[in-house]
Simulated scan of single mutants.
Amino acid sequence: MPEVSYLRPNLHRMTGFDAAEVRRLRTEEQLSVREIRARTGLGRNRIPELLRGVPAPARTRRPRAKDDLRAEAVALRSTGQSVPEIARRLEVSRSTAYLWVRHLPLTRNREEELERRRAHSKVMTDARWAAHRAARDRAQAETHALAARVVGQLDERDLLLLGAAIYWCEGTKSKPWRRDDHVQFVNSDPGLLSLFLRFLEACGVDRAVPTYRVSIHETADPDAAAEWWSTELGVPLERFRRASLKKHNPTTARLNTGDGYRGCLVINVPRSRELYWRIEGMIAELFRSAAHTFVGGCGPSA
């Protein structure tokens, strides 16, 4: 004789109407599985079968710990971020990031993509060569210190020889087809200009004697550049003449721009024919001496 339960109704053989009732309890009354079991007496496994395809009520859904991260991943994807970038930003695995955004195609502007690739390449290169560059910088600093010990204190002879040499490299020179015995020095390096002014002083020419002129592109500020050169080199601002402006060529990719660009400084020494002859004489003797002298090194090795 089959066992009959007297504690609850015999509902394990439910009709189609009974299945519809379970679905109604789910959709209309928004009951959970536990509440439907208590109402109908059905088993734990039977109710999920009858509710297959019926979404659970919102009130019964437990919030997922990563719902906020998922929403953030979608937002990042909409700005053109790749799956690896999203995974790195949110500190999740790439597979998780992919599952969150796989329904969103990645669309990027060509220029933005090139810029992103350049930035990524720079990061990878910097990481790869960081140790090498640090070792190179240390070696460079040690060599600088070793070379600096060779210089010592400059005397008058040193200044005369150095000044004549740098003038012959960067200064205006007389040519057979253009006789011009006039001292004019042009450069953009404050150190070299300062050294040339020391040379002039060793020759008896005070810094207030020459005239100065800024040669600079017309897109820059010549007055600000003149003030900077005056302060940097300790020369009187009233000795500056009107600046020479170079025309701007928009097709040229100039790198000497920005706040650090101050053009070149032109130093003209008035009534300097005899000074120019002295420079010619020193250079001629330097060339003669170098041709007959062998120097066996460039300083101490330790």
Score class of each variant (00 low, 15 high):
residue 90 L to A: 10
residue 48 P to G: 06
residue 143 T to F: 03
residue 292 H to Q: 14
residue 277 W to Y: 10
residue 210 P to I: 01
residue 265 L to S: 02
residue 106 L to I: 02
residue 91 E to N: 15
residue 184 Q to A: 11
residue 65 A to L: 08
residue 22 V to A: 01
residue 256 N to D: 12
residue 148 A to L: 08
residue 278 R to T: 15
residue 110 R to A: 15
residue 237 L to E: 12
residue 244 S to K: 06
residue 12 H to G: 05
residue 87 A to D: 07
residue 57 P to M: 08
residue 265 L to G: 00
residue 131 A to H: 04
residue 26 R to V: 04
residue 190 P to A: 04
residue 40 T to Y: 00
residue 213 R to P: 00
residue 54 V to L: 03
residue 208 A to H: 14
residue 199 F to A: 03
residue 201 E to H: 12
residue 165 A to D: 06
residue 92 V to K: 04
residue 128 R to F: 10
residue 44 R to F: 06
residue 255 L to G: 10
residue 66 K to W: 05
residue 191 G to N: 13
residue 36 I to C: 01
residue 149 R to V: 08
residue 229 W to A: 00
residue 232 E to T: 15
residue 125 T to N: 06
residue 166 I to F: 07
residue 233 L to E: 00
residue 121 S to W: 13
residue 94 R to Q: 11
residue 143 T to A: 13
residue 41 G to K: 02
residue 36 I to V: 02
residue 233 L to I: 06
residue 13 R to S: 13
residue 50 L to G: 02
residue 5 S to V: 13
residue 79 T to Q: 14
residue 159 L to N: 02
residue 153 Q to C: 07
residue 32 S to A: 05
residue 213 R to E: 04
residue 12 H to L: 15
residue 10 N to Y: 05
residue 236 P to T: 12
residue 151 V to Q: 09
residue 262 R to C: 01
residue 222 P to S: 03
residue 263 G to P: 01
residue 277 W to I: 05
residue 293 T to P: 02
residue 18 D to A: 12
residue 75 A to R: 15
residue 137 D to A: 14
residue 54 V to A: 05
residue 139 A to T: 07
residue 24 R to C: 10
residue 94 R to L: 03
residue 145 A to T: 07
residue 235 V to C: 08
residue 231 T to P: 02
residue 183 V to L: 06
residue 157 R to F: 05
residue 119 A to C: 06
residue 293 T to V: 13
residue 74 V to D: 03
residue 21 E to P: 00
residue 293 T to F: 12
residue 221 D to S: 11
residue 36 I to Y: 00
residue 245 L to H: 05
residue 217 H to G: 10
residue 40 T to R: 01
residue 19 A to E: 12
residue 13 R to I: 12
residue 59 R to K: 07
residue 157 R to H: 11
residue 158 D to L: 07
residue 101 V to W: 00
residue 90 L to Y: 09
residue 45 N to D: 04
residue 37 R to Y: 01
residue 294 F to M: 14
residue 117 R to D: 11
residue 287 F to I: 15
residue 267 I to E: 04
residue 300 P to H: 06
residue 282 M to A: 11
residue 246 K to M: 06
residue 108 R to M: 14
residue 284 A to I: 09
residue 151 V to R: 12
residue 146 L to K: 08
residue 226 A to M: 09
residue 72 E to V: 02
residue 12 H to Q: 11
residue 122 K to F: 04
residue 197 L to G: 00
residue 271 R to H: 11
residue 276 Y to V: 10
residue 268 N to G: 07
residue 171 G to K: 01
residue 96 T to Y: 02
residue 80 G to L: 06
residue 232 E to W: 07
residue 184 Q to E: 15
residue 85 E to I: 04
residue 245 L to N: 02
residue 227 E to L: 15
residue 1 M to I: 05
residue 33 V to E: 08
residue 156 E to F: 08
residue 156 E to V: 15
residue 274 E to C: 03
residue 177 W to E: 12
residue 63 P to F: 06
residue 65 A to Y: 07
residue 298 C to M: 11
residue 100 W to H: 05
residue 130 A to K: 08
residue 298 C to T: 14
residue 147 A to Q: 13
residue 19 A to C: 13
residue 151 V to D: 08
residue 8 R to I: 13
residue 222 P to W: 00
residue 77 R to T: 06
